[in-house]
Design a protein around this nucleic acid. Structure first.
Lengths: 231, 231
DNA sequence: ACCTGAACACCGTTCAAGT
DNA sequence: ACCTGAACACCGTTCAAGT
């Protein structure tokens, strides 16, 4: 352990060898910063999942001591909040053109939102449990604006937004979870086959193996948008 | 500790004193069993939330040593799976009457499913991450049967089921999470007010304070059922 | 068959201290 | 202003052992 630590520390005195052969030194890290911490946390979450994020592992990856993190960040919850929101950025059209295509705009934003979360499968299940960060609020603001401009009455606006939120979140959380465990899914369907006398219908339709998630998502979304469309 | 243990054990020999003065002994626990472990785990989860469930705390509540649990249960994951499924039991009509009211039946099961999860707010966010237990599979089987009998084509069945699943899960997870943190919600809306120049629309509609969750749920569900109904 | 404590390899965070 | 190690109060689980 002492050996490992001193190994990490020689980076300073070794200046000469650095000069002669720019060693690609893995531990010549830039100084700690909130941004670097968040970016690394996202990497770690992508690689190891929700349970894989540990203050100790995070510090390791950053080449710093554990407690150094706490200068830039309040606690682990904070790291989760920041990592989550950082993954939800949206660059839609900056100024909404007065387009007639509100359905297209809503669809685009929601599909993009879903895609962001699927790219970081830990994010979807985290989102409902945490306070909404600025990027998520921006998305809701945009959604709200589009729907309002499309003619949805103020009184119906919140219901519409939450219905869409509910649907997107449910679809994405489910898809992300099922995706994480392909083997489990096969195992589940096999278990089902063994119990086929108890669950004949879903066994026959191979419910647990059906994986046209994108199609199902789009279909359900269309139904909702049909219903929410101002008449 | 030895005292506690022997206290738990005298339950058998003590028949006489039980007769004369049914001591209400707090630690005269019945023997450990899978059922008792699961029931106590649910209690603990209800009281302390997902992070509150600890093998050590669970054992404490059961008046046993931690490692005793591992005789009845493989590991903590197992406890989660069992607690979750135990909370999802459904007693619909045992044999589906050949009713015309498929919408009513579907609605009833889904509302009940949601109610079960809201009664145990930890359960909703847990469900998508875990293998489906027998009670959940029964619900899906029933849903599948009703829809199929109502005339939904086999090819559309899985899409219909997953759309409903997505919606119910999203709505329930969101509601359960927001419910857990009333203060946070108010704080969020206040934070929003401070930033009202950035999020004018959702600030004005008080999106984060709108809490007709049940109404919104029903409305979105109706839209989906409208769309899924066989023509 | 059922239960146990000691021990191991981890956690997040407080604190007092270093530069 | 920024970083640190030691220490504390926890975790889940292995193991070898008890009855």
């Amino acid at each position: 352990m002492a050996a490992k630590r001193s190994g990490a520390r020689i980076k300073r005195p070794q200046r000469i060898s650095e000069r002669l052969q720019p060693v690609q030194q893995p531990h010549s890290e830039p100084p700690l910063s909130r941004e670097r911490i968040v970016a690394t946390a996202v990497e770690l979450l992508d690689a190891q999942g929700l349970d894989g994020l540990t203050m100790r592992r995070l510090a390791d990856r950053l080449g710093s001591g554990v407690m150094s993190l706490y200068w830039h960040v309040n606690n682990k919850e904070d790291v989760f909040d920041l990592a989550l929101d950082s993954v939800l950025e949206y660059r839609g059209q900056p100024q909404i053109v007065e387009s007639q295509d509100w359905r297209g705009e809503v669809g685009h934003m929601l599909e993009n939102w879903r895609a962001c979360m699927l790219r970081h499968p830990w994010s979807a299940s985290l989102l409902p449990r945490r306070a909404l960060g600025p990027n998520m609020l921006s998305r809701l603001e945009l959604l709200s604006k589009i729907l309002s401009r499309a003619g949805v009455a103020d009184a119906d606006l919140n219901v519409a937004i939450w219905s869409l939120w509910n649907y997107v979140m449910g679809a994405t959380i489910t898809r992300a979870s099922f995706d994480l465990s392909d083997d489990d899914r096969a195992a589940a369907q096999q278990r089902l086959a063994r119990l086929s006398e108890r669950y004949p219908t879903i066994e026959r339709s191979r419910l647990l193996l059906d994986n046209d998630w994108d199609g199902a998502f789009r279909k359900g979304l269309d139904l909702l948008l049909d219903g929410l469309a101002p008449r």
